[in-house]
Design a protein around this nucleic acid. Structure first.
Lengths: 203, 203
DNA sequence: TAATTAAATGAACGTTCGTTCTTATAATAT
DNA sequence: ATATTATAAGAACGAACGTTCATTTAATTA
């Protein structure tokens, strides 16, 4: 056969990405074949190569788009005020974003090792930039005396891992609402860096 | 050829497991082939099937052994005293164990999805049992008034994720020693559940 | 010592893999 | 209207996959 009526390259490309994402999240990059992706999209395998030079570039694009989206979303988030307020804002933002895009989050953590040199370096540096945001908030809090924690880097890594973990157990129809979970994590996070909540509770 | 001199089944089996572990940790279960494992062990592919019925069972055994080892190690760890002391003991234990066995930890988190029904259920229930340990400590602390945190389950999930994350960035020749990191995490963890450190610092 | 079992090899099975090539036709540019 | 480009299908490539089989010989048991 030949080109089908109504086919638009950009739409097929987008469909490939949005189709590949959940497949890779579920089975892993190596375990998902180009044929699987093509069938789910509804095109022949070879059509994938009109839009991506190879399988690896599909993964690279997925991860880059995710990290770009993460950084862009944080940039839109205006947060003023003291370090404590900023940390609360970051906590809520991170949880929300990671609950909204569980699949992209999952593969961005799991499939880093599947990336070859170039893509790997880019994603890593984007992740570091994101972590820097949190590190800087904590440093500010330490400097102003709002926070009491021995090391900004360790605190940042602890908090990011803690928040990202929500992704693995959150269920929309679970015992707790997203807001309750957010509130709870704000409490845990602020307390962890020694912020004096002075009896006030965040939940 | 035939059976080689000095070959002992149990040793080959152990070699297969210890060889497969780092390979799977590095490349992922789906991306590692039986031939790769065999070559690294130094035997022919078909020899693997004298010791495991299929590829999947290698992964199952790796994950089961890891979880068994984790539970057994915790059982040996005698921890008495108040909830705070128990939480400190758990924190140190978890970090140590996860730093000692980074590869097994990695795949036990990453490759759960690669497990089929039976193995999946077993590993999940072992993990739940381990998480229960922490949940119970936190419940105790809440009941005795030592801790001040809204939800034992959320706190437990937050802490486990936070501690396990050390695995992803710890480097033996990094800026901080393992002891320093442990101490720092004890501080972060106890504070996060609202334990009143009364000015004393854990680092 | 003879019989049996355990542990290995190497060839081979059918299947699937990522990718390339040729060809057809829709959409677009000239 | 014609030429060109974009987008698709389908066949085919060699390589690699997990697994099985027959065979050989070391180690163990009877």
């Amino acid at each position: 056969m030949a080109r089908v009526k109504g086919s638009i390259g950009s739409e097929t490309k987008a469909a490939i990405l949005s189709t590949a994402l959940p497949l890779i999240a579920q089975y892993g990059y190596a375990a998902v074949s180009m044929r699987q992706i093509a069938e789910a999209v509804g095109v022949n395998v070879s059509a994938l190569y009109n839009h991506f030079p190879n399988k690896q570039q599909i993964l690279v694009r997925l991860l880059m788009d995710h990290m770009d989206g993460l950084m862009a979303a944080w940039s839109e988030q205006i947060s003023r005020g003291q370090a404590a307020e900023q940390l609360e804002a970051f906590t809520r933002f991170h949880i929300r974003f990671h609950i909204e895009k569980p699949q992209a989050v999952f593969i961005s953590y799991m499939e880093l090792r599947s990336l070859e040199d170039d893509g790997h370096k880019k994603i890593e540096s984007q992740r570091r930039a994101y972590e820097d945001v949190l590190r800087q908030i904590i440093r500010d809090g330490i400097n102003t005396g709002e926070f009491n924690t021995p090391d900004a880097h360790v605190a940042a890594m602890s908090i990011i891992a803690s928040l990202t973990g929500v992704n693995t157990w959150f269920s929309a129809d679970g015992r707790l609402s997203q807001k309750q979970i957010e509130d709870n994590y704000v409490d845990l996070t602020l307390r962890s860096v020694g912020y004096e909540t002075k009896g006030k509770s965040y939940v």
